[in-house]
Design a protein around this nucleic acid. Structure first.
Lengths: 193, 193
DNA sequence: AATATTATGACGACTGGTCTACATATAATA
DNA sequence: TATTATATGTAGACCAGTCGTCATAATATT
């Protein structure tokens, strides 16, 4: 379900997602998206009568969903929350460096630009964050965390990752990611003091 | 030094900062900035020959500096790092709710949109984050934190706050801030288990 | 009076997103 | 098979908006 059939519609969505992540939502014109996807101008409004906003929402959903899948798979394989974080960190660092710190979180920029102006994009973003939170919560539950501390901790993990990714991108170093993850891991393994 | 004399130059900077925070950098036209500041088009290029990018950098520096001052003052008054975080949280929550979740971090959106494309804006952002980190580090040092854990923790705090603010804005709730700050406070007060 | 500094708004080359009208392909119906 | 019907894809016009430049006017400073 991740990489769908290469219809024009999907070409548009993924081209948009890529560009939005690097240049932001407002900074990306429909021209860019069309050029990157090789789709003709008029076809866009055939697939997305809602125009740019609808493409934005679809891009957030698609890119966010890909991250959700990565999270879920990693959570299954990892040996507890702390190990999960370290594995994900490794991926993150590789992606960041491979793109010369151009590819950060695929949805934050778009969401910050359009919140709370666009309800469609906002809804898509909230749904994605909810999915991520659920994966984290399941993982914490499986590590026998106390029920009442699961939801807050899941949120804190996502917040920490998002913030660290932002700092890393701006500073052009992966150090903030390591620092933040180290702090999170301290919380996740209270045993190893 | 916070609210400078009301010259045209400063009017432009603060109008730009306000608009960039709410609508993003690309989403804000010079038109909007000029209208909001009541300055004529040509005057803009008198004060900022570098055009929009230079205004962006100036806005990041100005808005970021204001936050630095708030941090510094709060750090002086607060009773330790955890108390500092709780006080700042109270401010943050008030600002967010007062603006109907429109006013988030005044520099993140602009930075995400322009990094690493614009070196001028990027440099301004890095300088601001460095200042913030220094305030946090000083505070941790005064709380007798071990030297080698100060810098990472300072980064983790900023990352957590940034991420929490992002989530709060998108979700339209202040809950993520409380959750994240609670986690950070657990790290800052290892005594109260 | 002569010279900097500050301030101005019209202009141009271009891009923004959106729309309407048209062409083709696939499928359903008669 | 012939004829609709529906989905898919295309082309270009449209105007408000983008940023930046310029020649000029008003004001300060010497």
């Amino acid at each position: 379900m991740a990489i769908e059939k290469k219809s024009q519609r999907d070409s548009l969505i993924w081209a948009a997602a890529k560009l939005f992540r690097r240049q932001g939502y407002s900074g990306t014109g429909l021209r860019d998206i069309l050029a990157a996807s090789g789709v003709a101008r008029g076809s866009l409004y055939h697939y997305f009568p809602g125009g740019k906003e609808q493409i934005g929402a679809a891009a957030v959903t698609a890119a966010g969903g890909l991250v959700t899948e990565t999270f879920a798979e990693l959570a299954k394989q990892a040996d507890g929350p702390a190990d999960f974080l370290r594995c994900y960190t490794a991926l993150l660092v590789r992606w960041l460096e491979a793109s010369d710190f151009q590819d950060g979180c695929p949805i934050t920029t778009t969401l910050l630009e359009t919140t709370p102006g666009s309800t469609a994009i906002g809804d898509a973003g909230r749904a994605v964050f909810a999915d991520w939170g659920e994966v984290m919560a399941d993982m914490l539950a499986q590590a026998d965390w106390p029920q009442d501390r699961i939801a807050p901790m899941a949120t804190a993990i996502i917040a920490g990752l998002e913030g660290a990714l932002l700092l890393a991108r701006v500073q052009g170093t992966v150090q903030p990611i390591h620092d933040t993850v180290a702090a999170l891991c301290t919380l996740l393994e209270p045993t190893a003091a």
